[in-house]
């Protein structure tokens, strides 16, 4: 999980690069880190290019992040989901909650 701030479009966007597996082992870590990142930005893009697998607790963590962002009038968008991750999103009703973009660039432009 790597966090950096992108201001290329004039807005302060928090970009989070997720990698490997997001499951019960590291989903609470994401939630904790997200609270810290929220002090630096309230618009977020989760770049999932290198995210291989996600399970229900990982999904729950991402939904919780979205809820936290919305509470502060922010936004959370997802970018570059691979086929496996997007199949999990489609299976659960979570897909409807998110704006999903094919790549990080277009997600950044959309704000």
């Amino acid at each position: 999980m790597i966090f950096h701030v992108d201001a290329s479009t004039g807005k302060t966007l928090g970009i989070v690069d997720l990698s490997g597996r997001l499951d019960a082992a590291n989903s609470s870590e994401l939630l904790k880190s997200f609270a810290v990142w929220q002090q630096q930005a309230n618009m977020f893009v989760f770049n999932c290019t290198r995210l291989d697998m996600i399970d229900s607790s990982g999904l729950g963590a991402i939904v919780a992040c979205l809820r936290k962002a919305l509470e502060k009038n922010g936004e959370l968008k997802l970018a570059a989901l691979n086929q496996k991750v997007s199949m999990v999103f489609e299976l659960t009703k979570a897909k409807k909650l998110f704006s999903i973009f094919p790549d990080t660039g277009s997600a950044i432009q959309s704000f």
């Binding site: 399970d55 229900s56 086929q83 496996k84 199949m87 999990v88 299976l91």
Partner: peptide, 14 residues
């Protein structure tokens, strides 16, 4: 259609 498959290792999903 695509034949893509994923194995769920998650009792809450499948």
């Amino acid at each position: 259609e695509s034949g893509i498959s994923i194995a769920m290792d998650d009792p809450h999903l499948l």
